[in-house]
Design a protein around this nucleic acid. Structure first.
Lengths: 100, 100
DNA sequence: AAATCATATCTATATTTTTCGATATGTCGA
DNA sequence: TCGACATATCGAAAAATATAGATATGATTT
């Protein structure tokens, strides 16, 4: 976990929102069509609709968040689901506590 | 305290280091000439020497950190001392805990 | 009052980030 | 296998950030 890289992700309102939304998928997104749970997170299309930005922008965001380790993608057929990576988020906290 | 603004500060290695150094001024900086304590923090020149960047860059950094509320400046004669603003740093933690 | 010192601000350039439309890739259904 | 669909990647333009040198400001000293 790299503090600067994670901080870059967090220095954008939409990306912070995505992490927030993914904390409670049931409350923030409609149910998926292929599966009846959010165990693997939420598909890109739903996140895009909620954020109101272009498909390519959201995909780029999710990619940078994945690079930073903050989210984990899972393919289900033609959809990619993204969920939070709680371990890395926790690691960010504890490192900040040390460093800051 | 604005999460995005603070995160922008933290998305730069040198600025993170400055916050780290200011946590233990005695360990990271030589004593000041005019006062024998670090109660108001550390003067810009010392921070600049330690960071190895230009005076204007460090001044700009410190200004952005102050805008974000992370540090507090105090004038002592011709020197400006900067110290951490622990309240805002704590607020950042707790907001992150909620949000993330 | 002038010279000096510490810091802040201004101006400019290089780099990075943001964001999109277009296109490519991979998957499913007909 | 072809077309439709979801997502990823590419290429580009605009905006923001990084960084420095030059200059301004404010304080101290002589």
């Amino acid at each position: 976990m790299n503090v600067v890289e994670v901080s870059k992700v967090l220095s954008n309102e939409t990306r912070v929102n995505i992490l927030k939304w993914l904390k409670e998928p049931e409350a923030n997104f409609p149910p998926h069509q292929d599966i009846d749970h959010f165990d693997d997170g939420v598909c890109v299309g739903y996140i895009q609709d909620k954020a109101g930005l272009s498909q390519s922008t959201i995909s780029t965001y999710l990619n940078s968040m994945q690079q930073a380790g903050l989210v984990i993608p899972t393919r289900h057929g033609k959809w990619t689901y993204y969920r939070r990576n709680e371990e890395v988020i926790e690691a960010y906290y504890s490192t900040l506590k040390e460093v800051l």
